[in-house]
């Protein structure tokens, strides 16, 4: 950096090029150094969770020695969890709720986004703003009144109560992303479809959904992640273990008494985090494109 200012008294072009190169190399080294430090910090907790999950209880209880190495690795914790009907019950509840919520949210938001992006009607402008504002209302503001409402419907302690309320988490943002994607589709396409005699539904199914597929994938991943990771609503509404989804199940049921089964707890947390991680490994690019477009384009 200081090299460029120093070269001002002798402005030779070669000199300038040389200092530029060294500046760039310096920047690259700084970049790698800070990224390595950041990666170590970012990855340390999951790595440590994994290390703990393959330790035996005896090794975890042994306080001497380096906690970051495993002396006698074992898969016992994973085996115990995967053969436990309670844990598999959590898993199944999560899968059921998530699949239903994703399906419902996508239908609601694609239909609504199409109408909001392409058909003018009374109040459509207000509704679009309303969708965005709804997205900004956090679940922690709503869970107490929803607790009363879900209770009065008799859906406390039932996964159906979760299916009912999770769309508040997913629908606003999915609609928002889809409005952005649909609005970016050129008008000529709908005109061509209208001339060919397509009705609105055909236009949506035959043209908009295929063309906006990346947006639909991004919105689906969002809905999936959010409903899989939802924590406030299940914590508030569910107290019977048999109806719990994974997040609250792992947090509340695997922690019992004064002696924690740390190995099993970590194994449970990692298994529960696995589905979103797998989805991201394969579809990360779609999701990031959708997210950043949703935030930057609006």
């Amino acid at each position: 950096m200081s090299a460029t200012t120093a070269s001002r008294d002798a402005p030779g072009i070669y000199h300038k090029a040389g200092s530029l190169r060294s500046e760039r190399r310096w920047a690259l080294w700084t970049a790698y150094a800070s990224l390595i430090v950041a990666a170590i910090i970012m990855l340390a907790p999951p790595v440590y969770m994994f290390l703990t999950s393959i330790k035996t209880s005896a090794e975890i209880a042994d306080l001497g020695g380096n906690p970051w190495i495993v002396r006698s690795p074992t898969l016992e914790n994973y085996r115990a969890l995967l053969s436990s009907p309670m844990f598999m019950g959590f898993f199944w509840n999560s899968v059921k709720v998530t699949l239903l919520v994703v399906a419902v949210s996508m239908v609601i938001s694609v239909l609504a986004a199409f109408a909001l992006a392409r058909m003018r009607f009374w109040g459509s402008q207000w509704l679009a703003t309303g969708v965005f504002l709804t997205y900004l209302v956090p679940d922690t503001l709503l869970f107490i009144p929803l607790y009363q409402i879900v209770g009065s419907l008799g859906l406390l302690n039932s996964t159906w109560g979760l299916v009912l309320v999770y769309p508040t988490l997913t629908v606003p943002f999915c609609t928002w992303i889809m409005i952005g994607y649909f609005a970016s589709i050129p008008k000529e396409l709908d005109e061509a479809a209208l001339i060919d005699g397509a009705n609105w539904m055909q236009m949506l199914v035959r043209i908009f959904i295929p063309v906006a597929l990346p947006g639909i994938i991004a919105a689906t991943i969002f809905a999936f992640t959010v409903s899989w990771a939802a924590f406030v609503y299940p914590t508030a509404f569910i107290t019977t273990p048999s109806e719990m989804p994974l997040t609250i199940g792992v947090v509340s049921q695997l922690i019992r008494g004064d002696t924690f089964a740390w190995g099993q707890l970590m194994a449970g947390a990692l298994l529960a985090a696995l589905p979103p991680v797998i989805v991201y490994v394969f579809l990360m690019d779609y999701y990031i494109a959708g997210l950043t477009a949703g935030a930057t384009k609006g």
Binding site: M42, V277, Y280
Partner: peptide, 13 residues
């Protein structure tokens, strides 16, 4: 990675 893991679970770690 931190952003991908559901926060309730990574906080356990």
């Amino acid at each position: 990675v931190p952003w991908v893991i559901p926060p309730a679970l990574s906080t356990l770690g």
